[in-house]
Every structure is written in structure tokens, then in C-alpha cells.
Design a protein around this nucleic acid. Structure first.
Length: 429
RNA sequence: GGAGAGGUGGCCGAGCGGUCGAAGGCGCUCCCCUGCUAAGGGAGUAAGGGGUUUGUAGCCCCUUCGAGGGUUCGAAUCCCUCCCUCUCCGCCA
């Protein structure tokens, strides 16, 4: 949610900025609505003030044993007038709220303007793209040869876009989660284990609702419960409706959770393998900072995510998302994309966003400014570090050998019980 | 799932249908006093919204005592629904 004051005072500039995101904000309509709302609110409040005054008078008169009937006659009809004014105000307020909840965040000035992912701007690359003296297989084939990935069986258990991992691949997947978690503990993140179901209020807070319900799996009972699409939802909501003492900032959380996405609108995309699943796991970083610190925090957060790829020796590039490719709540998003030899291109394994006060305003997440003693909205940031499934894919592809075996990256050997290589179970033919 | 108890300010806790946004205490802030410390005295101390204003100052008004409805001139207080917490029983990993 954007600052209503900003909308009021600078509606045209907001409209211009949102236009870069491809979002049309009808400033004129909004301002007209806001004026009318103010008028109605004044009406309602002066009626309430009158009622309060009269009621107090009645109370005083009664206490002094006076006859209160004449006073009561004076307020007759006031209740009806008030009720009617309230109804009208509520109607307008709903319309105004509809604006508030549907407006996406304002991109930061340095966010490139663009239509889609093709306009994202590469910041830099890290690492060496591996050379193979054979045609590298994709992770589906590697997974089959080492007998570690089985989507057919998963399809029988649930349906499309799920996988069963087994043997060393399942272990490697678990190793990745533990490795990432431990790594982030070293930079003083606080590990949290959170619910994998969130209610509609939490999803509203982080911006998935009301606009993006189609991306979520919703429970039938209770029907305001949803499977989390990302740990960002429960973790950011740790600070919902709170006022945090300034000296506790920044808060840095790390959580390993499953994520569930309906992937509506992705029909036919990435249908092969583990790239796009209804269920995947992720180690997520969440920061809660003062507004002054969030830019610096963003850089640190992204560097923390990058450190995982570096430790795993995987080549990647850093992309700053263009205005129309960013998520609803983000003011700036940088993706980390890892090299996939089979596709000969970089694929997203992490998305790091600074949501500034956008989520904080929706969640009611504040801190107490030591200067003024007043509560101020915090800034929230989140980033995957990393998505486990896609990282697993990257390892299987980048560390594969001609015989179908896969080298375990050094950083994971201890987590694999000393195992340095995953061996083929089937003929490579 | 069954039975009971309860949800009030940063925390604890009182609250008769009527000057209650709310006694009292703790904590915190400032001031005073006192060789230091400890103790003591005084004042202040919720949030959100709107108006006024050059103003994040001040002032005025409205709202908020778990949430939402209702009764009433007036609700923290009465009624209904829901949510949550605690205790006991049942079930369960």
C-alpha cells in the first residue's frame, strides 16, 4: 500500500511513476473521491461530536436529578441522520480503499523502465561457465540416470508439476537446505520455523491478496487459510501489528520452508523437470529495517544470497528487473540467475526485493523513532537464498560427467556424509 | 471434539449503562532532593484518522477496551455471532 498522503498531495507524479509499471492510476477520479470522502467524514464526525456532547449533558443532568426527557427530545432523529451519513461514508471509503489495495509499489528511480524480462538489466556476472567435451544432459536425464528424480510417480500421487526425489539426490536436496541455513547463521540471521499455512490477513499484508488469489492454493476449511507461496508471507508477518524498539533493528530472519504455487497462467511453461513445480522448497531471508537503512540492507541481502552460489561454485549473473517485470510489492528487485548448461542460459534461482514501506503499511509494522518517539513504518526486504529445487537442478547439470555421475560440490561434501560423487544407477544409453 | 475460565494501555491489573481513553501498580522519560549508590518527591507517558496551520509544533474533533453486529440519547460495562488464549477431559504425531 502506498502512503495515502502521497496519493493526495502528489497524485499526478504517482500516476506517472506507476505508468512505468504499466499500471493506470486514475488520479482525477481518486482525488475527487478523496475530496468527497473528506466532506462526508466531516459530516459524520460533527454529528458524532454533537451526539457525544448531548449524551454527556444527559448524563450530567441525570446525575443531578433533572428531568432528562426534554434533552432526549433534542437528540431524537440524530441517530438516524448519523446512521445515514455513516452508510454514505462507508460506501465512498470502500471505493477509496479499492484504490489503496490495488496500487502496486512505486519503483525506485534506478529501476529500468521496460516491458518484460527482456528489458531487465544485467549488472554483472560471476564465475566461469563450465566447458563440456560431451553434450551435457539436462537435469531430468541426469536425475533418471542416478535414479534420483521421478516425476511420473509424483504425477500418480498428485498430478503434474510435482517430483519425487530419492537416494543421493534427495539427500543432496536436504544437504542444500542445511548448508544454506548454516551459512546464513554465520552472518547472524535468526533462524525461524514458521507455519506453512497463512490466513488471508497475512497474505494481504505481504501483498498476495486480494489481487493474486489465483496464484495460491486455498484450503476449503477454514476457507481463509492458504498454503504459503513463499516464506516471505509468514516471516514478514512476524512483525505485523507491532512497534519494534529501534535498537532491535535491523531484524534478520532466515527460514527454510516449502512453497506452494498454483502456477495459474503458466500452462505449458517449463513443463519438463523441476524448474516450475507446484511445491518447492526455499531458504528465505527477510530483513526488517529503518527506512534509512533499507538500501544498504538490500545490497547486503543480495550479497548474502550470492555467497551461496559462490560457495557452490555456480556461475550466475545479477539482473535488475525492469518496471513491468517486478512484483506487486517491490520497489526494486534483483534476480540471481544461475547458468544451466543444458539450456545454455541463465535461470532465476533467487529474487531479492526491497518492498520499502509497502508491506509494512499493510501489516501495521512499525518501529519507534528514537528522535521523535513516534512510531514509523519499517521497511521490509526479502530474498531467496536460494530456491532449493532450482539450485539442485543447477548442480546436477553443472557438475555432471559423461558417464552420468555427478560431483558433489566441496561445500556440500560434509553434508553428504563425506560422499564426493553421485554414481549412475542405469546405463547412460 | 466436550466442559469451564478469560481477552482492558509497553506490562500487570481495577472498572457501577453516563464528564472512562479508562483507577492503581510496574516499567520508561524529564525535573527536584540527597557526598556516591540506594531510597524519596513532582510531572509526563497508547495508536489511527480528519481539520486548522508554512509546519513532522500547538490546538480542535472523531475512532479504538479481541473482531463484527445489536439494544440505548449514551456501551469497556447489557444481548448475539465469531476469533484467540488458558485449565481439565477425549483424540492424535
Amino acid at each position: 500500500m502506498l502512503d495515502p498522503r502521497l496519493l493526495r498531495e502528489d497524485a499526478d507524479r504517482v500516476a506517472d511513476t506507476l505508468a512505468a509499471r504499466g499500471y493506470f492510476f486514475n488520479a482525477q477520479e481518486y482525488l475527487g473521491l478523496d475530496e468527497y470522502r473528506k466532506e462526508l467524514q466531516n459530516d459524520v464526525e460533527s454529528l458524532q461530536a454533537e451526539r457525544n456532547r448531548k449524551s454527556k449533558e444527559i448524563g450530567r443532568a441525570k446525575a443531578e436529578g433533572e428531568d432528562i426527557e426534554p434533552l432526549k427530545r433534542q437528540v431524537a432523529g440524530l441517530g438516524d441522520r448519523l446512521a445515514e451519513a455513516k452508510r454514505e461514508l462507508e460506501k465512498i471509503q470502500e471505493k477509496e480503499d479499492a484504490f489503496h489495495v490495488s496500487l502496486p509499489n512505486l519503483p525506485q528511480p534506478e529501476v529500468p523502465e521496460g516491458e518484460d524480462e527482456n528489458d531487465n538489466v544485467e549488472q554483472y556476472r560471476w564465475g566461469e561457465v563450465p566447458e563440456f567435451d560431451f553434450e551435457p544432459r539436462d537435469h531430468v536425464d541426469v536425475g533418471r540416470i542416478v535414479d534420483g528424480i521421478d516425476s511420473e510417480t509424483a504425477a500418480g500421487i498428485v498430478g503434474a508439476r510435482f517430483s519425487v526425489l530419492s537416494g543421493d539426490v534427495a539427500r543432496l536436496h536436504r544437504a542444500l537446505g542445511n548448508f544454506m541455513l548454516d551459512r546464513h547463521l554465520e552472518t547472524n540471521y535468526r533462524e525461524v520455523n514458521v507455519p506453512f499455512i497463512a490466513n488471508s490477513a497475512s497474505l494481504f499484508g505481504t501483498g498476495q491478496l486480494p489481487k493474486f488469489a489465483a496464484d495460491l492454493f486455498r484450503l476449503t476449511e477454514p476457507s481463509n487459510y492458504y498454503l504459503i507461496p513463499t516464506a516471505e508471507v509468514p516471516v514478514a508477518n512476524l512483525v505485523a501489528d507491532t512497534i519494534i524498539p529501534a535498537e532491535q533493528l535491523p531484524l534478520k530472519y532466515v527460514a527454510h520452508t516449502p512453497c506452494f504455487r498454483a502456477e495459474a497462467g503458466s500452462a505449458g511453461r517449463d513443463v519438463r523437470g523441476m524448474i516450475r513445480q507446484h511445491q518447492f522448497e526455499k531458504v528465505e531471508l527477510v530483513w526488517v529495517t529503518s527506512p534509512e537503512d533499507s538500501d544498504a540492507a538490500f545490497k547486503t541481502l543480495r550479497a548474502d544470497a550470492e555467497s551461496i552460489l559462490q560457495a557452490l561454485g555456480l556461475a550466475y549473473r545479477v539482473m535488475t528487473l525492469c518496471s513491468r517485470d517486478m512484483g506487486f510489492a517491490a520497489a526494486r528487485t534483483d534476480d540471481l540467475e544461475v547458468w544451466l548448461p543444458s539450456q545454455k542460459l541463465y535461470r532465476e534461482v533467487s529474487s531479492c526485493s526491497n518492498c520499502e514501506a509497502f508491506q509494512a503499511r499493510r501489516m501495521g509494522a512499525r518501529y519507534r523513532d528514537p528522535e521523535t518517539g513516534k512510531p514509523r513504518l519499517v521497511h521490509t526486504l526479502n530474498g531467496s537464498a536460494l530456491a532449493l529445487g532450482r539450485t539442485l537442478v543447477a548442480i546436477l547439470e553443472n557438475y555432471q560427467h559423461a558417464d552420468g555421475s555427478v560431483t558433489v560440490p566441496d561445500a556440500l561434501v560434509d553434508y553428504m556424509g563425506g560422499k564426493t560423487r553421485i554414481e549412475p544407477q542405469f546405463d547412460t544409453g
